[in-house]
């Protein structure tokens, strides 16, 4: 059999499929170039929607994931939040804020060798549960912490 010909056919059909997807508007060329920013996940308004967009399904509870942050934040515009996971092979961490207009605030992909310990600062419109979603060893885990906000950070 002419293997070279097989290869050409294979690559040809792959490119054809790709072209079709682009043409159908299923994927934009920009997305095609890089995985890029996860727009659906960041625009999700509800918990189920956000989890679905992140491919998390129904995450389990875990005692090995910790959220650090204040119990009461005076200024909702700057709320320090940290997530730490003691689970082996933690590869992904996301911070979600239940009562914000869009729940997902930030997500982190951790290559091997990077500790599952990240901190950042987020905005909170009002008192809300803050969730830490963690992917470790292929499964998702989630924990929450309520942070009370005295002055919202999403108004003007």
């Amino acid at each position: 059999m002419n293997t070279q010909r097989r290869e050409v056919l294979k690559s040809g059909s792959a490119a054809g499929l790709f072209g079709l997807l682009v043409a159908a508007g299923l994927i934009t060329t920009q997305q095609a170039q890089a995985a890029g920013w996860d727009k659906p996940a960041f625009e999700a308004k509800a918990m189920d929607e956000a989890l679905k967009a992140l491919g998390a399904g129904k995450p389990a509870d875990s005692k090995d994931v910790q959220i650090s942050g204040p119990d009461i934040a005076e200024n909702g515009a700057v709320v320090p939040v940290g997530v730490k996971s003691a689970l082996a092979d933690t590869e992904f961490i996301a911070i979600l804020i239940e009562k914000n207009p869009s729940m997902l605030a930030a997500s982190f992909t951790l290559p091997a060798g990077t500790m599952a310990d990240v901190s950042t600062r987020v905005k909170m419109g009002q008192t809300s549960n803050v969730f830490a979603l963690v992917k470790a060893g292929g499964s998702f885990y989630m924990v929450s912490k309520e942070i009370k906000v005295t002055l919202g950070g999403c108004g003007g």
């Binding site: 930030a106 982190f108 992909t109 290559p111 060798g113 600062r121 905005k123 999403c154």
Partner: peptide
């Protein structure tokens, strides 16, 4: 690459980020 992050608009102004790698 030691960290890849994605931010939404809910990250504070002048974002702060802290992480560790081995």
């Amino acid at each position: 690459v030691v960290l890849a992050a994605q931010f939404g608009p809910a990250v504070s102004k002048n974002p702060y980020l802290q992480f560790k790698f081995a």
